[in-house]
Simulated scan of single mutants.
Amino acid sequence: MTYLSPILVGVLYALAMSLIREPHRRRFNAIMVAGAGAAYLTGGGLGGWEFLATAVITYVAYRGLESWTFIGIAWLLHTAWDLLHHFKGNPIMPFYHESSLACAVCDPVIALWCLRGGPSLISLVRGRTARPRAAEHAPPS
């Protein structure tokens, strides 16, 4: 469950974000990853490095306002920061010791979705399950 639940959370995040239309979806995700970059500021245990990491992730997220690639990169930077906290710092949720590891598993799922351009998963599912119309498959006259 340590690995399966965070993967599911990442997929559910992408699914929920699919409800937001473009270009708002991209911009909203840039704001989300910028916020995630600041998650450890209140006690991550790595001192001044917390501010530097937050500044870097925020800058990359800002570039993500116009680029899904930068949003994906920001999520991968946050993944690295999560791993560092799991091994050397404090967990993102003090009451759940494995929370930084769980975040480090979830974030790359979101990053992969972003690096693919943040497509609507709802549209992808509908496109695969939609039945073709009879006229589309009628033999040519």
Rank of each mutant, 00 (worst) to 15 (best):
T2P: 05
T2C: 07
P6K: 01
I7T: 02
L8R: 10
L8N: 11
V9E: 13
V11E: 07
A14S: 15
A14I: 06
A16Q: 11
I20V: 15
I20R: 05
H24C: 04
A30F: 08
A30C: 01
G35A: 11
A39C: 06
A39S: 11
G43N: 07
G47L: 10
G48M: 04
G48R: 06
G48V: 09
E50G: 05
A53H: 12
Y59D: 04
Y59P: 06
V60E: 01
A61M: 11
R63D: 13
G64N: 10
L65N: 09
L65P: 05
S67K: 03
F70L: 09
F70G: 04
I71H: 07
G72V: 09
A74L: 13
W75A: 14
L76K: 07
A80G: 03
W81S: 12
H85D: 04
P91I: 09
M93N: 15
H97V: 15
V109M: 02
W113F: 03
C114I: 04
R116E: 08
P119Q: 01
I122N: 07
V125S: 15
G127F: 01
R128F: 06
T129K: 06
R133H: 01
R133L: 00
R133E: 00
A134R: 00
E136K: 00
H137W: 02
S141G: 07
S141H: 08
